[in-house]
Design a protein around this nucleic acid. Sequence first.
DNA 1: ACATTAAATTGTAATGGTTACAAAAATAAA
DNA 2: TTTATTTTTGTAACCATTACAATTTAATGT
Lengths: 136, 136
Amino acid sequence: MVTLKAARALLDEKGLRSSATRIHVLAYLLSYPSHPTADEIYQALLPKMLTLSKTTIYNTLDLLTEANITRQITIDGKEARFDIIIVDHGHFQCNTCKHIYDFSVDLDECMVADLTGFKVAQRNIYFKGICPNCQK
Amino acid sequence: MVTLKAARALLDEKGLRSSATRIHVLAYLLSYPSHPTADEIYQALLPKMLTLSKTTIYNTLDLLTEANITRQITIDGKEARFDIIIVDHGHFQCNTCKHIYDFSVDLDECMVADLTGFKVAQRNIYFKGICPNCQK
DNA sequence: ACATTAAATTGTAATGGTTACAAAAATAAA
DNA sequence: TTTATTTTTGTAACCATTACAATTTAATGT
Ligand SMILES: [Mn+2]
Ligand SMILES: [Mn+2]
Ligand SMILES: [Zn+2]
Ligand SMILES: [Zn+2]
């Protein structure tokens, strides 16, 4: 598994201890960059780590987000999702199949003067509608 | 209260029955377009309507959103907020004072080709950071 | 006015994602 | 090995939201 090594390297790079849980959570996000929820990650790792606790999943995801390795995204307000891609990009969630698509967007292009004086730390953009698959 | 009449007119216009609860919820949103939560509206109206139920607040806000009178916005993933301004605009939430600022944005300007074939029904954009007030 | 039907509101209980917290386990330092 | 620190675990609490049945209110028809 190449992602395990990559996960370990990412953690080392950020000065975080590479515990088994952290490696596997991060490796999962690298392997499945599909904006999983905490529970999806938990369910996926449970067969491999029988004593895994969901609290640890939350702790780990908080740690990764704090270290700027992952990004927490809020789309439906129901459950948080986590993105291994941290560069600014847009999300499109299909109202039918609920799948979340990435799309690139140039946020500098559409900015207006209203935010002079504001210190912007994070930019989020998400659309909703029907994806091509679900339209026909 | 001019907003009571305005609220009634808005409901009539959309073919919704203008019950007391609906009028007051809508009038509150018109008077305080500060993206209140359901509970904030509930607490504000309670002194006027002693038997008010929070379920009714949720029902009413759902109704208004469904009728395209208000718009539900999700920023922190913790609690939903409601906006009386339904034209596309951006939101900036200050990490310190938690206040939510509106800002205008030209979303058509920054669009890319990635979403051809997608039927976009709703567009959301929100930033986070520190507002001018809280910077010094 | 009265009966009948439909719509709106209420109260309570359940849901579900997330967090708090203290105990247990694992790891690092001495 | 001891000691200290970090990580993980399990459970309970939290809290916004929803489900649902009962009650109240309003509209309709006679
Ligand atoms: Mn993404
Ligand atoms: Mn707004
Ligand atoms: Zn779809
Ligand atoms: Zn502020």
